[in-house]
């Protein structure tokens, strides 16, 4: 029972990352009809927004400490953050400690701008080109972006810890009447799950309850008719691209305490996110979210030691097996719409 609950929590946690990334992918596909292979790179750029803010907050000047020596035996140069000079040590440490949540505020405008620049500067030229061309150009863009990040930040992972208050883990077992330490789960992963739920809800609310969202949904259903009504649907779709980039970026920002950011992290999620989108149903936002959680939970249970011992390697293929079964039984995916990618 403990194992079941742990793997369920783990699946919800993993599924929330899949759902967030797939949601952004679906937004882009559903509005612009573009298969965006650079979406993983947007997730990675979000993570590096955290790293950038962390470095900005840690900008320092050097003070020579004669009492200590560096590795060459010279007096140690101690780095003192400017924040410490301005606000004192305690406040400075607290601000740096909270750099990951603060990075959300930093990443929102940055990622929206990156998304809009990407769409206006490159992707709009490929709207009427075949999907194969779109895949090639966005995949190429993803590689360029990750090489730029590697050239500047290096290839090694860069630690970006959660705030001190969220670094422990919660003993769910005690809550459910189990002995201590039987079911524990990290606070930050629970925060990530809650954050994903909030972002997903906000995106759906934006599309459902605002005039802008209504126009976008109408445009997704029938772009030409909306255009004939005199609405500049292209401009709204450009903004939606920025919003999708922002969702992917925020998923990356909050993921940094879970896995230290590295230039390749976007690629690790890319293929699986496309599977999630296809399983959910091309162009279906609820489908992307549902498939993200379903596949996350499946993968989690397939990673149990008892399962791997019976079927070695199942954890590596379970998502693809599930995708095959779902697509054989429901060719449009779980919640796919008729007519999308069928012409």
């Amino acid at each position: 029972m403990e194992a079941f609950i742990i793997q369920l929590l783990s699946g919800l946690d993993g599924g929330s990352a899949y759902a967030l990334i797939a949601l952004g992918l679906t937004l882009i596909f559903g509005t612009l009809g573009v298969v965006n292979f650079a979406h993983g790179a947007l997730f990675m750029l979000g993570a590096f927004c955290t790293v950038t803010l962390q470095r900005l907050l840690s900008l320092s000047h050097e003070v020579i400490d004669e009492s200590q020596k560096d590795f060459l035996g010279n007096p140690l140069k101690v780095k003192v953050p400017y924040l410490q000079d301005w606000f004192g040590e305690a406040t400075s440490n607290a601000i740096i400690d909270w750099s990951v949540p603060l990075a959300i505020l930093f990443a929102i405008p940055v990622m929206i701008l990156i998304g809009i620049a990407m769409e206006r500067g490159l992707i709009k030229h490929f709207y009427k080109r075949p999907h194969a061309d779109q895949i090639l150009v966005t995949f190429g863009l993803a590689i360029v972006l990750q090489e730029i990040i590697k050239a500047y930040f290096g290839a090694n992972p860069i630690p970006a810890p959660a705030p001190e208050v969220f670094r422990g883990s919660y003993d769910f077992g005690l809550l459910l009447g189990f002995e201590p330490n039987r079911i524990i789960y990290p606070y930050w992963r629970l925060v990530y799950f809650a954050f994903a739920a909030i972002v997903i809800t906000a995106v759906f609310a934006f599309l459902q309850f605002t005039t802008f969202g209504m126009v976008v949904r109408a445009g997704m259903a029938d772009r030409e008719t909306v255009g004939l009504l005199g609405i500049d649907i292209d401009r709204r779709f450009t903004i939606m691209f920025g919003l999708a980039a922002c969702v992917a970026g925020l998923a990356g920002v909050m993921y940094t305490p879970i896995n230290s950011p590295n230039y390749h992290m976007g690629m690790d999620f890319l293929v699986i996110s496309f599977v999630v989108v296809v399983v959910g149903g091309m162009g279906s936002l609820p489908g992307a979210v549902l498939a993200g959680f379903v596949l996350g939970i499946l993968q989690s249970f397939a990673s149990m030691r008892e399962v791997i011992e019976v079927i070695p390697g199942i954890n590596q293929v379970v998502i693809y097996l599930a995708a095959i079964i779902i697509l054989l039984t429901r060719p449009r995916g779980l919640l796919g719409r008729k007519g999308v990618m069928e012409d």
């Binding site: 194992a3 783990s10 039987r182 992963r189 879970i258 896995n259 989690s300 149990m304 954890n315 590596q316």
Partner: peptide
């Protein structure tokens, strides 16, 4: 002794059952 794929990035599924 559990084998983990070389390409694995998030080890939660492997670490979660350790304590129990």
């Amino acid at each position: 002794a559990v084998k983990t794929p070389l390409a694995q990035t998030d080890f939660k599924d492997y670490v979660a059952p350790v304590l129990s």
